[in-house]
Amino acid sequence: MVDATMMDEFFSLFVEEFGAPNSSRPVPDDRFAKYGGILPECLLSFWRSCGFACFGGGLFWMVDPEDHVGRAQDWTRGIPDWDGKALHVFARTAFGDLYAFEPESGRVLSVYCISGLLMTERRSPASRADGEKSVRSFFAISNPEDFDFTDEDDVPLFSRALETLGALNADEVYGFEPLLALGGRASLDHLRKLRMDVHLDILRQFSTPTLRMV
Rank of each mutant, 00 (worst) to 15 (best):
G56F: 06
F206E: 10
H199M: 09
L191I: 04
F206W: 15
E102G: 00
L109V: 09
A4Q: 13
D153T: 11
L118I: 04
K34L: 12
H190S: 15
A140E: 07
L179R: 08
H190D: 15
F206N: 11
T150C: 14
L188T: 00
Q73D: 08
R160G: 09
L13I: 02
M7I: 11
A53Y: 01
G37I: 02
G51Q: 04
L200A: 04
I79G: 00
E102D: 06
S124M: 14
F14W: 02
S23Y: 05
L162F: 10
D154Q: 13
P21I: 04
S45N: 14
A4V: 13
N22R: 11
E66V: 09
G183P: 07
V15S: 09
G70S: 07
M6C: 11
S12Y: 05
A20G: 10
G184N: 07
R92Y: 03
F10Q: 13
A86N: 10
A140S: 15
P26E: 12
G70C: 06
R31E: 02
D146Q: 08
T208L: 13
A186Y: 02
A100H: 01
L98R: 02
P125C: 09
F10P: 01
N143K: 15
D30H: 14
L13P: 00
F60K: 02
P209D: 05
D146L: 09
D3N: 15
M1S: 12
A181L: 10
R128T: 11
P178K: 04
R204W: 06
V69Q: 14
I202T: 13
P178N: 07
L157Q: 09
T120Q: 09
D64R: 04
R25S: 11
V27G: 03
G96F: 04
A72W: 03
D81E: 15
E177S: 14
F55M: 07
Y99K: 06
S137T: 13
F158I: 03
